[in-house]
């Protein structure tokens, strides 16, 4: 066990939702979305989370980012439980853990200029300082220039918007970036731009990355370590190479065999 605690971790987290009641006087049923999950990410590490639709990936990110309180279990930021933390500690957590969402078109308010949208995190987290310098710096990091600030989201392509969403997440200088299927809505060629950018950020800024996807090959490209989640449980964790070449859990085998590649398609044994 390493002496430094992980930047962000969850221990034994369980979360259940109630079904909407089917009849007025029947008690609503519950079903468990996350079941005793342990998950962590160290400083500067890129961790992947793969699983089918409905496996509980988005729920996990909501709990990891403190948007939802788990019914049982703890969420630890630098070793301290975020739900026990004082206001100052919580503010630091909010600033340090940022999120990138799946659909770039819907993650920016269509009626808000890019400049305003990028300042949103600073305003809401009450961070002072010269934001203009920070804006220029962050836009540079995602490969855009300041001419973007005065424009509205509809003037950009999906790939550019996802860069802007990443820039917004980078504004408060976070330690952890949680990306929930950040490339699922993008075309292959654009997808490559965004994946490369995320990789650069981890390498150049020492960011920690939690990367969620349903496609194992995308996760393998971006992360050092990946967990497979199925039915609300983590069924296997390891380096992506291992998961790909020697999958142990049947759910992992399923995901591996579901990956289509051009070569397997051409050789005629993809389906």
């Amino acid at each position: 066990m390493s002496p430094v605690p992980p930047v962000l971790a969850m221990e034994q987290v369980t979360q259940a939702y109630s079904h909407p009641r089917t009849a007025l006087f029947r008690a609503p049923g519950t079903f468990t979305v996350l079941d005793c999950i342990d998950f962590h990410v160290h400083a500067g590490e890129a961790v992947g989370l793969v699983g089918e639709s409905g496996a509980g990936k988005t729920t996990l990110t909501r709990i990891l980012t403190g948007m939802e309180k788990p019914q049982s279990g703890r969420v630890l930021f630098e070793g301290a439980d975020i739900w026990q933390a004082g206001p100052a500690e919580r503010a630091r957590f909010r600033r340090s853990v940022q999120m990138v969402l799946q659909n770039p078109r819907s993650s920016l308010d269509p009626r808000m200029k890019i400049g305003t949208a990028l300042l949103e995190p600073m305003r809401s987290l009450r961070i002072d300082g010269n934001h203009l310098d920070r804006l220029t710096e962050v836009l540079g990091q995602v490969g855009l220039d300041t001419s973007a600030l005065e424009r509205f989201p509809h003037e950009f392509s999906g790939g550019q918007l996802q860069r802007i969403a990443i820039a917004r997440a980078l504004m408060p200088n976070p330690r952890v970036l949680v990306a929930d299927e950040p490339v699922s809505a993008l075309d292959v060629s654009i997808q490559a731009q965004v994946l490369n950018l995320l990789k650069d950020l981890v390498r150049d800024l020492g960011l920690s990355l939690v990367f969620i996807a349903h496609d194992l090959s995308v996760v393998a490209y971006t992360t050092h370590r990946a967990s497979v989640i199925a039915g609300g449980r983590i069924v296997e964790t390891g380096p992506p190479v291992e998961l790909f070449t020697r999958p142990k859990a049947p759910q992992t085998q399923n995901l591996v065999s579901a990956v289509l590649t051009v070569n397997s398609g051409l050789s005629g044994n993809a389906l």
């Binding site: 890129a46 392509s157 790939g159 550019q160 292959v188 060629s189 654009i190 997808q191 490559a192 731009q193 994946l195 490369n196 990789k199 090959s217 995308v218 393998a220 490209y221 971006t222 992360t223 050092h224 380096p239 992506p240 190479v241 790909f244 990956v259 590649t261 051009v262 070569n263």
Partner: peptide, 24 residues
């Protein structure tokens, strides 16, 4: 073809970079 993140295209130790088509 080069932008595909597939087993044939990347080293799984995280060292490789994907080719991407610039622009849009």
């Amino acid at each position: 073809l080069d932008s595909q993140p597939t087993m044939d295209n990347i080293a799984l130790d995280g060292s490789s970079r994907l080719h991407s088509i610039p622009g849009m």
